[in-house]
């Protein structure tokens, strides 16, 4: 049955309306959870606010578990979903760059957009920065291309990497997440409060 649009169950014209609505919900949830504040987001690195990690892990668990139940019920075909491709070294280096950018700027692209929505000027600067970053990347694409397209492992999942069933991955991940949640509260109690 699902996914609906790739299977032609919803006409493609609706695509953009749906995109707008999904974006609306996405922005609303992020803003309401406090992701429009860079100092709240960045609290995860200094131990005074773990909202990011809590929301992030909860989302990942809920969506992964939910998708597998839906696959079982036949509502959605997991094999038809878009799996983010793995290019080993670009993913690592890109992740390092994003980590740096995160520490410098305090946002990620999604949260910066919703922070712009409530009028954060630093978020606007961040978004402009992203565009400059994309521009620099594109202009130097000739140089970066071999690296960018190198070490391609295709659309692999954790199941391919570790060779175990997806259920184990989800269970292990859930247990890890719960432990992380516990320790995040544990740490937060011991860290000086920061008001932002």
């Amino acid at each position: 049955m699902g996914p609906l649009i790739p299977n032609g169950l919803i006409p493609i014209e609706w695509n953009f309306v749906i995109a707008l609505l999904i974006g609306l919900a996405f922005g609303y949830i992020m803003e309401a959870s406090g992701f429009s504040s860079s100092r709240k987001i960045i609290g995860v690195f200094y131990g005074y606010d773990f909202a990011v990690i809590k929301l992030f892990f909860t989302t990942a668990i809920v969506s992964a578990i939910g998708l597998y139940y839906m696959d079982y019920l036949g509502w959605v075909d997991i094999s038809q979903l878009y799996v983010h491709p793995t290019y080993l070294w670009p993913a690592i280096v890109g992740g390092v760059f994003m980590g740096l950018g995160f520490m410098f700027g305090g946002y990620c692209p999604g949260t910066s957009l919703c922070a712009i929505g409530i009028g954060k000027i630093d978020a606007l600067a961040f978004a402009v920065g992203i565009m400059i970053g994309v521009f620099i990347f594109s202009e130097s694409f000739g140089l970066l291309e071999p690296f960018f397209n190198g070490s391609n492992y295709g659309h692999i999942t954790m199941m391919d990497t570790f060779g175990i069933s997806p259920y184990w991955i989800i269970l292990i991940f859930t247990v890890i997440a719960v432990i992380v949640f516990y320790f995040s509260d544990f740490i937060r109690k011991r860290v000086k409060k920061v008001f932002y």
Binding site: A60, G94, G105, I132, V134
Partner: peptide
């Protein structure tokens, strides 16, 4: 930070939402 994030997001083919949230949902390595 934006410049660095922009570069990184292009290299990794996605940011925290695209690669992170959506990738983790389908257990992408």
């Amino acid at each position: 930070g934006g410049v660095l994030f922009g570069l990184g997001a292009q290299l990794a083919r996605g940011c925290t939402s695209g690669a992170g949230l959506s990738g983790m949902a389908v257990l992408s390595t």
